[in-house]
């Protein structure tokens, strides 16, 4: 009986452990992108991204509702959703990947990391390897990453008429502050 109680306790701890400590999540990740073309600079941002990171295994995940991106010009925002990203058909952009190594969440500091994974935009998946940083600050993680997305890679077509208004390669910036998932769940 005693043995079983010990086993029970150990298992219970195991469950809590798996659920809690290594996984950090974020429900208000900031994403923005910038397109610089001869005639026009276009910028849009959202803070509606969700993200998670497993500090032990290095697994990371990002997801953003594409129609939450806000533009300076509302007509542009409409065209972005209607003509380019087709958000009714493809409402999410998603990234699944892995960090180059584990992060020690008990030690404050900034880690330079390499992220390896697949990103799906406009329903088209592509492999990306990008550099970013993860900052640990008293059990809170902040991840930042800046990378380029070539529109052609995700089958986003730019008509010849606006070729001077929209860049072929768009710079994307991601910024997320994570807290331990168990805390976040509360």
């Amino acid at each position: 009986m005693k043995k079983q109680i010990i086993l029970f306790t150990v298992l219970l701890l195991g469950v809590l452990h798996a659920f809690g400590q290594d996984v950090y999540s974020c429900r208000n990740a900031n994403l923005s992108f910038f397109s610089s073309a001869p005639l026009e600079d276009i910028e849009a941002k959202t803070d509606k991204g969700v993200a998670a990171i497993n500090a032990k295994t290095g697994a990371i995940y990002f997801k953003v509702p594409v129609n939450t991106f806000q533009f300076k010009k509302k007509l542009m925002q409409e065209h972005f959703n209607e003509n380019y990203l087709e958000t009714e058909k493809y409402p999410w952009a998603e990234f699944k990947g892995k960090l180059s190594g584990p992060i020690d969440c008990t030690k404050n500091g900034t880690y330079d990391v390499t992220v390896d994974g697949n990103m799906t935009i406009h329903g088209v998946q592509k492999a990306y390897t990008e550099k970013g940083t993860v900052t640990v600050n008293n059990g809170q993680l902040t991840a930042t990453c800046k990378f380029n997305v070539k529109l052609e890679d995700h089958k986003i077509k730019i008509p010849t008429l606006v070729i001077k208004n929209i860049a072929e390669v768009v710079e994307v910036t991601v910024n997320a502050t994570y807290i331990a998932a168990a805390t976040a769940a509360k």
């Binding site: 996984v23 998670a52 497993n54 295994t57 697994a59 995940y61 997801k63 509702p65 999410w92 998603e94």
Partner: peptide, 14 residues
């Protein structure tokens, strides 16, 4: 928790 973090957000909607 370790392999597929996407499950954490399965319920999220736009």
């Amino acid at each position: 928790a370790q392999d597929d973090l996407s499950n954490m957000f399965k319920d999220s909607t736009t």
